[in-house]
Design a binder for these strands. Structure first.
Lengths: 68, 68
DNA sequence: GCTTTACGTAAGGTGTACTTTACATATTTT
DNA sequence: AAAATATGTAAAGTACACCTTACGTAAAGC
């Protein structure tokens, strides 16, 4: 699963730290998500989508036959 | 976070086992999700939404100030 | 009566989403 | 030159999202 977090964050002119405060996670979590270290949870995905004023499906790119 | 998995599954006339095969998880996982034992991951949430032909936000009910 | 179907609980294991702390480095600001 | 800002890596811990196996029970079908 890929995501557009960095792209959307930069479009808003936000730092990683500012975004982490908005959605209530550590800065490390934002770094790891942007660099594809792991996937967000559903709750965090929802909060990020809210921060960027878009749908979850617009922020995360689901590939076919993705592993759980 | 609540969800409408059971409601949507029954509307389709599906058993838990059938749904579990469609989305590629164990039957236990479906039981636990329906009974609110834990939250789905983003990837599983997406697969479930696809199975029910709806958006993730339509299947999961996000509450305000939800913990990560 | 027996078997099948559907749903549920229990218990123990693995991988990962997220945390905290610490340190490094490049760019910008004073 | 020194300080502040932004991004990144590393490492170790915790919680939970999955798994598997096994067993219980109630309803429906043969």
């Amino acid at each position: 699963m890929k995501n557009r977090i960095r792209e959307r964050r930069l479009a808003k002119g936000w730092s990683q730290e500012y975004l982490s405060e908005i959605v209530g996670v550590s800065r490390q979590t934002i770094i790891s998500l942007e660099n594809g270290k792991y996937n967000a949870s559903l709750v965090l995905g929802h909060k990020l989508a809210q921060a960027f004023e878009c749908a979850i499906e617009d922020l995360f790119i689901f590939e076919r036959d993705e592993n759980i």
